[in-house]
């Protein structure tokens, strides 16, 4: 199999599109799955979908991460049937806060920031964003902030695990033939 005839820039663009679509589909699936799982506590959201946002951020760039996370929330809530319902705004707020923190940190620190650190930041941002919007829109009750410590602790833990999973996935995808340079693909299998 040879792909030397294909323009490498065109190949990279195409690869990006295909992978982003794949990541988005996976993120939507995980987003939906998580809502269907029995949650023993409201702050018990595992945030698996963020693994894919991290992949987009580290394999491509911040724009890819934004596209993915917003598409994930929109399509996910279309599937769950809660578009523009309170749950949707909570998801949106969490996703926006998380993505803003992650892309911002990546912009600031570049390669010094790893997926685990970005994920931890994103998870905590997600928790804060959700709680803030819940307080603003839904429950104007100060008792809500008593949940914050538990919310944060749990999000930090899941953030670390998701970051770890994302790191593994990013390495796996980077090592995949589809991500290898065209020249390398000329070598016999």
């Amino acid at each position: 199999m040879t792909s030397s005839a294909i323009d490498p820039v065109e190949l990279a663009r195409c690869r990006r599109r295909v992978f982003l679509a794949l990541f988005t589909a996976l993120a939507v699936a995980l987003h939906t799955l998580e809502f269907l799982l029995p949650a023993p506590a409201p702050w018990f959201r595992l945030g698996f979908a963020n693994i894919l946002t991290l992949c987009a951020l580290f394999l491509f760039d911040g724009r890819a991460a934004w596209t993915l996370s917003l598409a994930r929330v929109l399509v996910g809530s279309l599937i769950l049937g809660n578009l523009f319902a309170p749950g949707f705004f909570l998801s949106l707020a969490g996703a926006v806060a998380a993505t803003a923190l992650m892309t911002g940190a990546r912009e600031m620190f570049g390669a010094r920031l790893g997926p685990v650190g970005a994920s931890a930041l994103g998870a905590v941002g997600h928790a804060l964003g959700q709680l803030l919007v819940a307080w603003l829109l839904l429950v104007r009750h100060d008792g809500l902030w008593l949940l914050l410590p538990f919310f944060l602790l749990l999000s930090l833990a899941t953030g670390l695990l998701n970051g770890f999973a994302a790191a593994l996935l990013i390495d796996a995808v980077r090592g995949h033939r589809a991500f290898a340079r065209p020249a390398a693909q000329d070598a016999p299998p």
Partner: peptide, 25 residues
């Protein structure tokens, strides 16, 4: 798997969480 900066960020966040427990718990 964590970079030096990652470790720093996580430590900082953990500190924040503990502080929130101290204040609100």
């Amino acid at each position: 798997r964590m970079t030096v900066l990652d470790r720093f960020i996580v430590a900082l966040l953990l500190l924040g969480v503990l502080a929130s427990f101290a204040v609100l718990g």
